[in-house]
Computed example of a mutant assay.
Amino acid sequence: MSIKLHLIFDPLCGWCYAMQPFLRASQTYFEGRLKLEFHPGLLFPEPMPISSEYREHMLNSDARIAALTGVPYGEAYVNKLMRDHELSYHSVPPAIAVLSCDRQSVNLALLMLERIQYGHYVEGQDVCDLQVLAAFAEELDFSKTAFLDSYAELVQCIAEKNSTCQELQHSVGCSGSPSLILEINAKRRYLNPSLAYQAPRQMILLIARQLLHHQS
Rank of each mutant, 00 (worst) to 15 (best):
Y197K: 01
M48S: 13
P21E: 06
I96H: 05
L5N: 01
I8G: 03
I65R: 00
I181Y: 02
H6N: 05
E53Y: 00
H57Q: 01
K80A: 14
K80R: 15
V92Q: 03
S26P: 05
N185E: 11
L111E: 14
K4Q: 09
L99E: 05
M19P: 04
R209P: 04
V98S: 06
P72S: 09
N185P: 02
N60D: 11
I207H: 05
S88Y: 10
Y29T: 08
V127P: 08
S177G: 08
I184T: 01
A109T: 07
Q202H: 00
D149M: 13
I181K: 02
D129A: 13
I158Y: 11
Y54D: 01
A63E: 10
E123F: 06
I50S: 00
C101Q: 07
V127G: 08
K161R: 14
R55N: 04
F142A: 09
S163R: 11
S175P: 07
I3L: 02
T145E: 11
Q202M: 02
E153F: 11
P200Y: 02
P193R: 08
C157P: 06
V127Y: 08
F147L: 08
A196H: 00
A146E: 15
P94F: 03
E167D: 14
D126W: 06
C101L: 09
Q125F: 12
P40A: 10
R83H: 15
V127D: 05
H85L: 14
V78K: 11
A76T: 08
R115F: 09
Q117I: 08
M1E: 01
Q215R: 11
G176D: 10
I181N: 05
R83Q: 15
V71A: 01
A76E: 12
L133H: 12
T28V: 15
H90R: 03
R201L: 11
S2R: 05
R103N: 03
L34V: 09
R209I: 04
N185G: 04
A186V: 12
C165N: 12
K144P: 08
V127K: 03
S91Y: 03
H170Q: 13
T145N: 05
M112D: 09
L113A: 13
P21K: 01
S2C: 00
S143L: 10
F147D: 09
E153H: 12
T145Y: 00
E167Q: 14
L59P: 07
M58A: 00
L195F: 03
Y73N: 01
Y121D: 06
N162A: 15
S61D: 02
C157A: 13
V132Q: 07
E139P: 07
S171R: 03
V122Q: 13
D129K: 12
H213M: 15
R115H: 12
I184L: 12
G119I: 06
I96C: 07
M48P: 00
A152W: 02
P40W: 03
T164A: 14
S171M: 04
A134E: 08
